[in-house]
Design a protein around this nucleic acid. Structure first.
Length: 813
RNA sequence: GCCGGGGUGGCGGAAUUGGCAGGCGCGCGGGACUCAAAAUCCCGUGGGCGAAAGCCCGUGUGGGUUCGACUCCCACCCCCGGCACCA
C-alpha cells in the first residue's frame, strides 16, 4: 500500500474528543477488585503553564495508570491544584490580579495541557485547595490538631522575609536567605505564632521510614532532618546565684574535662546570671547577637561556611563572660559561665559544656578567652560517667532531635483562615466544626501589610465576631494556614471529593488509601512529605484511619534542563520548551516517548529537540506497519494460507515483549521500556514478510496495539480501530503472558564458546543438549579449533543455555 | 568532614545481576529516491593493526577473587545530590 503520512494532529484530536465524551477514565466505584492509587504531587498552577519538564512527571504516571487499568486493577488517578500559598499569591500579586481569579484561569490551562498530553486523569475528581468546600476540611484538620494538644501558640523569634512580608518556617530559610528570594537575607522578629507539635512524633517519623519503598536519598534527607541524637543532660549548679544550668551533650564521657559553660544569647538566664558589674555588657552583647542571623553568627565563629564557601578563621568567635560560675557536678570545681554566639537556643537546652581538650570549637573559644584547656586524656567511659552523674542526681540520658515544631501560621491573605477566635472572657476558642468553613473574605487589597499582620486584620467585618462559647464580643485570628496544611491531607479527599459530612468518605478512603504510587520532584523530599506523614499518624492515633503511612511507594523524577543554558526550565530564565509546541510539531505520542526515552526516570536530563524527532519517526514506522496489516486483513482473500513460517517465533517475540514491558513499567524504567518497544518494532518488521494478511499477523498487531497503549495512547487507539478491535484499546486487557513462551532453553538458544574466557565463537543449539554433546558442538568451530591449537584442555566450564568455556594450558609434552 | 548516588563510544544511555560490552536512539559517514533540498528508506559507525579473514586493546585509576568481572572485594581519583554550631 501507499501509506498516507500519519496525520497525528487530526487523529490525536479525534481520540481526545472521543475519550472525553465517553468518559473512559472515570474512576470505578470501590469493589472487591484490587486497587491502585496512582498520584502525582499536585502542582500549584502557575501562569507559566507546563513545560516539557512537567511531562517527565505526568506522562510516566499516566503510563502506569493506563497499564494498571489494562491489568484489571481499579485505578484512582486524579489531579488537583495546590492553589493556596505563597507561590500562587506571589504570582497573582505580580500581575495585580486576585489570586482566586488567576488560579482558576491557570488551572484551566493546566487541565487543557494535560489533556493535550493524553493524560488519563479523572477530571470529575479535580480539587483546588482554595475551594471553601476543600479548605473547610483543612480547617477541620487544624482543629483536630488543636483538640489533640498538637497545635499551640507561642511567642518567639521568627524569620521574616522582607520581600514576602511574612514569617517563614525554619525550613523555608536556606543559608540565611529566603527560599523564594535567594538574594534576600532574612531578618528576625518576635511574634506570637501558631505551631504544630511535629516533634512529638519525631521518633515514629524516623522509625517508620525503614519500611517505606522510597528512594534511599529521600529517606536519608528525612533522617537528617529529624536528626536524632542520643546523649545526656547534665545539670551544673550555679554558684551563689542559685538554680542550675542544664547542658546537653552527646559525649558525656568528656564531662571530666569540661572547663566552662556556654549559654546561647537567647538563654532565659543569660542576662539574669550576669554579675552586677558585667550586666550591661552582657545585655549589650545579647542584644547584638539577637539581631544577627544564625548563619552570620556561625560564620563569625568560624563554624559555618560563608556565602562564597570560604571558612572564616574563627578569630572573631564572639562570647562574653557573665561573671557567674557553676559547679562541675562531679569534681565540684567552679567553671566560668559564658554567653556565646555559636550556641543555639532551640537546640535542646541552649547551653553546652565546653570541653576544649576534645572539641575543636571549644578549644578555639578557650584560646580566645584564655580559658584552661584541661588535662590531656579526660575520656572516661560514657556509662561510668553517666552512672556517677546519676548517683549525684545531676542528670541522665536524654535523646534530642534536630527537628523543630512546625510553624503553621502565615501573615498572608491567600490561605485558609485559622479557625480560632479570641474572646476576652473565654480566651482562645476554636471555631465549632459546624461553623466551618471560616471563609476567606473578599478584599480589595490583599497585599501583606508589612507590619507583621495579615491583610485580614484590616477587615473589621472579618475580625469582629462573637465568641462561640459565651456569645460575647470576640476577635478572629487573622493569620492563615501554611500551604502545607492543605497538601497534608489532600490525597484523602480524592477518594470522594463530593462527600460533605466529613473530610473524606470513610468507605471510599478505606478502599483507595493509602497511595500506592506517589510521584513528584525531590524538592518536596522533606517538608511536604514529612508533614503529610505526621498528619497521617495523627489521624491514625485519633482512630480515623487505619494506616500510619500515606505513601507506600515514592518515586522522584529528575528535572528537565534546558538545552539553551543547561539550567532548569523556568519562565524567568526564558528557557522553557512548552509541550504545546512539541505536540504541534510532532504529536503527543512522540512527546510522551521522547520525555521517557531521553534518560532514566529519576535522572536530570537535558531536553533534546532531536529526541522528539526520533520519537516521531518511531510513531510513523509503527503506524505504517499496522496500517499495512490492517489493509491486508481487510482484503477479501488473504494472500497466504495455512500456518505461516515459524508461527512459534512470532508468538514468542510478543509474549516476551509483553512480559518485559510490564516489568519495566512497574520498575519505572521507562527509558528502557521505549527502547524495548523500538526493538520490538525492528523485529516485527523482519518477521513481517510472508505473514501479512494472515489471521496470526492481525492477531499479533492487536497485541502490539495493546502493548503500546499505555505509552502511545493515541496511536494505539487508532491502530485498534484500524484493525477492527472491539471498543477502546484502553478498555481492553493487557495481553496474557504464557510462561512457557517466555522461558529460556526449550527452544533454540545461542551458546557462547570461550577459550580461556575469551569469546571465540557462538553456536546455536536446539532444546537442552547434554554436556558432552554441547562440548562436541562447541569444539567444532574453526575459530575455536584455531585457538585450541597447540594447547591442552585442562577443564571445560559449561553453563547450560549460556556458555562453554575451554580452560587450557600449554601442552607439556 | 559525614551520608546517599554515580563514572561505559562523538552524545543520551543498555547489559536477564558473574557469562557475547556498547542493545535502542541521537549524531555522523556512505548510498537510493529527487532538477535540487527536506522528508523517507538501505548500509556503516568504540580504538588500533590488516585488502580480507582475523588479531590485539577497551567500561575512572591501581591491585585482588574467578574458568570468566561493567558487575564482587581492597585502596585511590573525580562528578552529582543531601547534611554540616547540633555540643
Amino acid at each position: 500500500m501507499r501509506g498516507r503520512p500519519y496525520d497525528f494532529a487530526a487523529i490525536e484530536a479525534r481520540w481526545r474528543r472521543a475519550w472525553d465524551e465517553q468518559g473512559i477514565y472515570r474512576t470505578p466505584e470501590p469493589s472487591s477488585r484490587p486497587k491502585q492509587y496512582v498520584l502525582d504531587f499536585f502542582p500549584y498552577p502557575s501562569g507559566a503553564g507546563l513545560s516539557v519538564g512537567h511531562a517527565r512527571n505526568y506522562v510516566p504516571t499516566d503510563v502506569l495508570a493506563r497499564y494498571f487499568r489494562m491489568r484489571g486493577n481499579a485505578v484512582l488517578h486524579p489531579m488537583g491544584w495546590d492553589a493556596f500559598g505563597l507561590p500562587a499569591e506571589n504570582e497573582a500579586l505580580l500581575r495585580g490580579r486576585h489570586p482566586g481569579e488567576t488560579t482558576r484561569e491557570y488551572a484551566a490551562n493546566y487541565r487543557a495541557q494535560l489533556s493535550l498530553l493524553g493524560c488519563s486523569y479523572d477530571w470529575s475528581r479535580e480539587i483546588a485547595t482554595s475551594d471553601p468546600a476543600f479548605y473547610r476540611w483543612t480547617q477541620w484538620g487544624f482543629l483536630l490538631l488543636h483538640r489533640q494538644g498538637l497545635a499551640y501558640r507561642a511567642a518567639g523569634w521568627q524569620w521574616w522575609c522582607p520581600k514576602c512580608q511574612t514569617i517563614l518556617a525554619n525550613e523555608q530559610v536556606e543559608a540565611g536567605r529566603c527560599w523564594r528570594h535567594g538574594d534576600t537575607p532574612v531578618e528576625r522578629r518576635s511574634l506570637e505564632q501558631w505551631y504544630v507539635r511535629t516533634t512529638a512524633f519525631a521518633d515514629r517519623l524516623l522509625r517508620d521510614l525503614d519500611d517505606l519503598d522510597w528512594p534511599e536519598h529521600v529517606k536519608t534527607m528525612q533522617r537528617n532532618w529529624i536528626g536524632r541524637a542520643a546523649g545526656a543532660e547534665i545539670r551544673f549548679p550555679v554558684a551563689w546565684g542559685g538554680g542550675e544550668i542544664t547542658v546537653f551533650t552527646t559525649r558525656p564521657e568528656t564531662l571530666p574535662a569540661a572547663t566552662f559553660i556556654a549559654l546561647a544569647p537567647e538563654h532565659p538566664r543569660a542576662v539574669e546570671l550576669a554579675s552586677a558589674d558585667r550586666r550591661d555588657d552582657v545585655e549589650r552583647f545579647v542584644m547584638g547577637a539577637l539581631r544577627r542571623t544564625e548563619i552570620d553568627r556561625m560564620v563569625g565563629a568560624g563554624i559555618a561556611r560563608t556565602a562564597n564557601g570560604g571558612m572564616a578563621d574563627g578569630g572573631d568567635a564572639r562570647g562574653i563572660f557573665t561573671g557567674a560560675f557553676a559547679a562541675h557536678p562531679t569534681s565540684g570545681d567552679l567553671v566560668p559561665v559564658y554567653v556565646a554566639d555559636h550556641v543555639l537556643a532551640h537546640y535542646r537546652t541552649g547551653a553546652v559544656m565546653g570541653v576544649p581538650a576534645c572539641d575543636e570549637r571549644d578549644a578555639a573559644f578557650a584560646r580566645r578567652f584564655g580559658l584552661p584547656v584541661g588535662t590531656g586524656r579526660p575520656i572516661g567511659d560514657p556509662d561510668g560517667v553517666l552512672a556517677d552523674v546519676a548517683r549525684r542526681g545531676a542528670g541522665g540520658p536524654a535523646v534530642r532531635y534536630r527537628m523543630r515544631d512546625w510553624l503553621i501560621s502565615r501573615q498572608r491573605y491567600w490561605g485558609a483562615p485559622i479557625p480560632i477566635v479570641y474572646c476576652e472572657r473565654c480566651g482562645t476558642v476554636p471555631v465549632p466544626e459546624d461553623q466551618l468553613p471560616v471563609r476567606l473574605p473578599e478584599v480589595a487589597r490583599y497585599e501583606p501589610s508589612g507590619d507583621g499582620r495579615s491583610p485580614l486584620a484590616a477587615i473589621p467585618e472579618f475580625v469582629h465576631t462573637t465568641c462561640p462559647q459565651c456569645a460575647g464580643p470576640a476577635e478572629r485570628e487573622t493569620d492563615t494556614l501554611d500551604g502545607f496544611a492543605d497538601s497534608n491531607w489532600y490525597f484523602l479527599r480524592f477518594a470522594d471529593i463530593r462527600y460533605d459530612t466529613g473530610p473524606w468518605h470513610p468507605e471510599a478512603a478505606g478502599y483507595w488509601l493509602p497511595v500506592d504510587w506517589y510521584i513528584g520532584g525531590v524538592e518536596h523530599a522533606v517538608m511536604h512529605l514529612l508533614y503529610a506523614r505526621f498528619f497521617t499518624k495523627v489521624l491514625q492515633d485519633a482512630g480515623l484511619i487505619t494506616f500510619g503511612e500515606p505513601f507506600v511507594r515514592l518515586r522522584n523524577q529528575g528535572s528537565m534542563l534546558s538545552p539553551s543554558d543547561g539550567a532548569r526550565m523556568s519562565k524567568s530564565r526564558g528557557n522553557v520548551v512548552t509541550p504545546d509546541d512539541v505536540v504541534a510539531q510532532h504529536g503527543a505520542d512522540a512527546l510522551r516517548l521522547a520525555v521517557m526515552f531521553i534518560g532514566p526516570f529519576d535522572q536530570d536530563v537535558t531536553w533534546d529537540p532531536d529526541a522528539a524527532r526520533g520519537a516521531a519517526r518511531f510513531v510513523r514506522r509503527l503506524h505504517v506497519l499496522i496500517a499495512r496489516a490492517a489493509e491486508a486483513a481487510a482484503r477479501p482473500a488473504p494472500p497466504a494460507t495455512g500456518e505461516p513460517p515459524e508461527a512459534e517465533a512470532l508468538r514468542r517475540r510478543l509474549h516476551h515483549a509483553t512480559k518485559t514491558a510490564g516489568e519495566l513499567i512497574e520498575g519505572f524504567r521507562f527509558n528502557v521500556l521505549v527502547a524495548e518497544l523500538m526493538t520490538l518494532l525492528n523485529d516485527l518488521e523482519l518477521l513481517e514478510s510472508g505473514r501479512v494478511g494472515t489471521p496470526q499477523w492481525r492477531e499479533a498487531m492487536l497485541i502490539l496495539a495493546r502493548i503500546i497503549a499505555p505509552v502511545t495512547p493515541f496511536l494505539a487507539e487508532e491502530a485498534w480501530a484500524m484493525l477492527g478491535g472491539e471498543g477502546s484499546v484502553h478498555g481492553s486487557s493487557w495481553p496474557k503472558v504464557d510462561p512457557a513462551l517466555t522461558a529460556e532453553g526449550d527452544a533454540e538458544a545461542t551458546i557462547v564458546v570461550q577459550v580461556d574466557g575469551r569469546m571465540r565463537d557462538r553456536i546455536v543449539v536446539a532444546g537442552t543438549p547434554d554436556r558432552d554433546a554441547l562440548i562436541e558442538a562447541a569444539r567444532g568451530g574453526e575459530r575455536v579449533r584455531a585457538a585450541l591449537r597447540g594447547r591442552e584442555v585442562a577443564n571445560v566450564v559449561v553453563v547450560p543455555g549460556r556458555v562453554v568455556n575451554f580452560v587450557t594450558r600449554a601442552r607439556t609434552s
